Amino acid sequence: MTAIEATGTTTSRLSAALWRRPGLLVAALLVLPLAWLGVVYVGSLLSLLLQSFFSFDDFTAQVKQELTLSTYAELFRPSNFDIIKRTVTMAALVTIASAILAFPIAYYAARYARGRWKALFYLGVMLPLWSSYLVKIYAWKMILSREGIISWFADKLHLTPVLDGWLSLPVVGGNSLSVSPTGTFLVFVYIWLPYMILPVQAALERVPQSLIEASHDLGATPASTFRHVILPFTMPGIAAGSIFTFSLTLGDYIVPGIIGTSRLFIGQAVYTQQGTAGNIPLAAAFSVVPVIIMAFYLWFAKKQGAFDAL
């Protein structure tokens, strides 16, 4: 028997064995991905969790590898807790605004756009995602600056006093939109909006047209049809989109680092503590906060049927 024939025989036997035992084939295909998931992904999360139970000696600038909850207690200091509240509030506002903006766009695409118009819709939604993340942020920094196009439009429309009045407010204002919480909010909504539009559009396409027609035939007003027919079908899509907008805002540190004030978000706190301060345990504890928040958020989103719309 030649080497080629032997190789062919071995391959045939292996194929026959895998055909008789499909579970073995599935295991062979999944062993490497599961090993990667278990070692790299889960392993890094467990390492992060372990680091958060250590403490940091400010005098020696060394990590004390003794299990303690003192690092988590530091999260409840007013300065650190304000960072958590600020980040969660921003993530919630961005999610709500994205849902409000995404719905009419997604509704038009699902109900009226056909052929080329639907292709243009997908192109328009996806196009911002193809450009550089940093380029978009720095472009928005120029747009929101005192010399930017928004200030120029406000001046041409004689709305500069209104803009200045808004910027003078203590919570949302600043020297300009580019160094204010309002600017941070606008950039977050712009960047994450496509992640809300697409799930909502997919959910709206699954609304049976017959139900809408039946609602009209039974004398329901457009508002009643929206509230009792369209919105319940759309909620899984909104919940699915909110998973992206909420979680991505929760962990982002680049946008608030370039657009906004000096007040930190969770991502910036993690970057600062593990970099400049060298306080790895506190950085790890801050990193665990979004994980815990998203665990509860995913549980709630699952109850809303969000995973059916992903």
Rank of each mutant, 00 (worst) to 15 (best):
L25M: 07
D252H: 12
T160Y: 09
S55T: 08
A99M: 13
P161H: 08
A91V: 09
L193D: 10
L120K: 13
I280Q: 11
L204G: 07
L101D: 06
I83M: 01
N279H: 08
Q65V: 14
L231I: 04
P128K: 00
G305D: 12
Q65P: 12
I4V: 15
I105Y: 14
D57F: 04
M196V: 04
W152R: 10
G174Y: 02
P208S: 05
E74S: 14
L30I: 01
K64C: 15
T276A: 13
L250W: 06
L69V: 13
A109G: 12
T184N: 11
G115H: 12
A239L: 14
R206P: 03
A113G: 03
L67T: 05
I143F: 01
F296V: 06
L264Q: 07
I292G: 06
F233I: 09
F246R: 14
Y253E: 09
R77E: 14
N80A: 08
Y271M: 07
M196T: 04
I258T: 14
A202D: 06
G237H: 00
T225I: 03
T89P: 04
L129R: 01
A109E: 09
L14V: 13
L204Y: 09
I96G: 03
Y108S: 15
L127G: 07
V207C: 04
V88S: 03
Y108G: 14
A277H: 11
L48P: 08
W299T: 07
K302T: 11
R146G: 15
F188Y: 15
M90Q: 01
R111K: 04
T60W: 15
F307E: 04
L250S: 06
I212N: 14
Y271T: 02
G23D: 01
G267L: 05
M235C: 15
R13T: 07
L193K: 05
V200I: 10
S178A: 08
